[in-house]
């Protein structure tokens, strides 16, 4: 089993998205008040940086180097949603984003031709992504006191709607690169195609 050009493009995209995620959470960790959430966000920052390292090593093991890419999935989010202006909005966008990432990685895992080394990397990353969803959900629940539970709910709904559009545009724009994911037979992947989140 060999990796092809699409693998190189896709893994490079994953890698640079993880790098941008690390930079974003690093900025957040730098300014947050001390406490539980600051600890979690700092951990999240470190996880994203580690994930970018995992992808870099994965590509090296597969015999190629990352492509230089700048545009990431986060960029699409900020274009579609506008930049978040408070901590609750950051957590809400993070929850929607993490769920999307889990769904997308699950879809990649479901493809029968996924290289074992890529599979190993995704599975390692997924462990962290699930933990991220858990702490962000908890943070959003607690933020209902400060921001209003209804405002938190409406913000999540707005972001989830925009996420559907952003992901559909990604698939449409890079359809040729992602054709292999379309054939993934995982039930969760089918749910993603139908528009619901995968986790």
């Amino acid at each position: 089993m060999t990796a092809d050009d699409n693998d190189r493009w896709m893994l490079s995209y994953y890698r640079v998205s993880e790098i941008n995620g690390a930079l974003f959470f690093g900025q957040m960790a730098r300014i947050m008040r001390p406490g539980y959430l600051q600890c979690q966000v700092t951990h999240h920052f470190a996880d994203e940086a580690a994930h970018s390292s995992y992808w870099t090593s994965c590509m090296e093991d597969l015999g190629f180097y990352p492509e230089k890419q700048r545009a990431t999935y986060q960029d699409r989010y900020f274009t579609a949603l506008g930049v978040p202006a408070n901590l609750m909005e950051v957590m809400a966008i993070t929850l929607v984003f993490e769920k999307r990432v889990i769904g997308h990685y699950r879809r990649h895992l479901a493809h029968p031709d996924t290289h074992p080394r890529i599979r190993q990397t995704i599975e390692r990353i997924m462990l962290d992504e699930r933990r991220h969803v858990k702490y962000v959900r908890q943070a959003l629940d607690e933020m209902g006191v400060r921001y209003g539970a209804d405002f938190v709910r409406r913000t999540l709904e707005r972001y989830e709607e925009a996420d559907q559009d952003a992901y559909a545009k990604l698939i449409s724009e890079f359809g040729e690169r992602m054709t292999f994911l379309e054939s993934a037979a995982d039930p969760a992947a089918s749910a993603l195609t139908a528009g619901s989140l995968g986790s």
Partner: peptide, 26 residues
């Protein structure tokens, strides 16, 4: 860049204990 503005907005809210929404900031 936009991420610096996010950092600035959140830093002010954390420091001065206020909430500003995306709509207000825009």
């Amino acid at each position: 860049d936009s991420l610096d503005l996010v950092e600035m907005a959140i830093d002010l809210q954390e420091e001065f204990d206020v909430v500003i929404t995306q709509e207000e900031f825009a």
